[in-house]
Design a protein around this nucleic acid. Structure first.
Lengths: 148, 148
DNA sequence: TATTGTTATACTCTATAACTATA
DNA sequence: TATAGTTATAGAGTATAACAATA
C-alpha cells in the first residue's frame, strides 16, 4: 500500500493504528492463503465447523458476526470447492447442518499453518512476551465490550 | 452486533481480535461523532490538514492510504459542509491546495474530543499503563511493516 | 404465525480506466 | 509526454425485503 509518512496527530489515533495493523495482517493472509485456495473469511468458517457439535448456517452466521444472507454465498463457495457439505437436519428440516469434508479438514490444517506464518511475520518486531501481551490486551477488549 | 459466543480456535486468531476491537471502536466513533456531523474518515482528513504545510488532494490521499479518486468525494463532502476549502495552487495550477476553514477548525476540535471519548470508552477495561502498552505495541507494528 | 434458507435488490466502499487541464 | 483532478464504471462486501419450505 505504501502509505506516506503521516503526521503524529493522525497516527496517534487508535482507529488508525488498528486499521493499519489489520490491513497488514490481511495482506499477509491473502499472500500465504493463496496456495491453499481459501480466503481469510473462509478460514473463519472452517475453524467454526471444526468441532464436535452440529452447526446450522444461521448459527455459523451468528458466531461469525455476519448476516445469514451473507453466509449463503460463503457456504456456496466452500461447497463448490468440496470443503463443506450441507445436509438437511433430520429433526428440523428447515435447517442446513454444515460439516467439513475430508478435503475440508485437510484445507483447514494447511490454512492454519499459513495463518500462523502470517501472524509470525506481522509480529516479527515483537518478542514472545510482547506478542502475548498484545493478544491478551486485545482479547480483553474484544470480550468485555461485545459481550455485556 | 451481538456476536454469539465463539470457539477458542477462532477467537485465538489475531485477525479476529483486531477486527472485533476495530468494529467496536468504529461503532463508538459513529455514535460520538454523529452530533459533530463528521465521519471517522472525515476526521482523518481534518487531522491531516491541521498543520502548517500546504497539502494537495493527492498528497492527502497518499498519507491517508486511499486512492486519489476516493479523495475527490471525501473533499466534496467536507467542502459542501464548509469545513474545507479548495484553491488552485499558484505555482502549479493542476493542484488543489486544501485548507481548513474556520468552521473546519471548530469541527476538528469537537471531533477530537468525541474521538477521545470513544477511545476512552473502548479502553475502559484497561488501566492507563495497559492502554499505553497497547498503543505502543500497535504503533511499533504499524511503523515497522508498512514503512520499510 | 414464526423460522431457515434463499433470492433479488440496494447501498457503501473502493479501485480502474478514460477524460480535462495544465505542465 | 506526464501529472492532478475529475468522472464514469465496476467490483467487493454487506444489509433489507420478499419468498418457499417447514415448524
Amino acid at each position: 500500500m505504501a502509505i506516506e509518512r503521516i503526521g503524529p496527530r493522525l497516527s496517534a489515533r487508535l482507529t488508525y493504528l488498528l486499521k493499519r495493523v489489520l490491513v497488514d495482517l490481511e495482506d499477509l493472509h491473502a499472500e500465504h492463503l493463496a496456495p491453499v485456495g481459501v480466503s481469510g473469511r473462509e478460514l473463519g468458517v472452517l475453524l467454526l465447523l471444526d468441532g464436535p457439535d452440529a452447526t446450522s448456517q444461521q448459527q455459523a452466521a451468528g458466531r461469525l458476526g455476519v448476516d445469514r444472507t451473507t453466509m449463503v454465498g460463503l457456504v456456496d463457495g466452500l461447497e463448490a470447492k468440496g470443503l463443506v457439505a450441507r445436509r438437511a437436519d433430520a429433526e428440523d428440516r428447515r435447517r442446513n447442518v454444515l460439516a467439513l469434508t475430508d478435503a475440508g479438514y485437510e484445507a483447514l490444517a494447511r490454512a492454519l499453518r499459513a495463518s500462523d506464518e502470517a501472524e509470525r511475520q506481522l509480529l516479527t518486531e515483537l518478542d514472545d512476551d510482547e506478542s502475548a501481551q498484545l493478544r491478551t490486551l486485545l482479547a480483553r477488549l474484544a470480550w468485555n465490550r461485545s459481550e455485556p
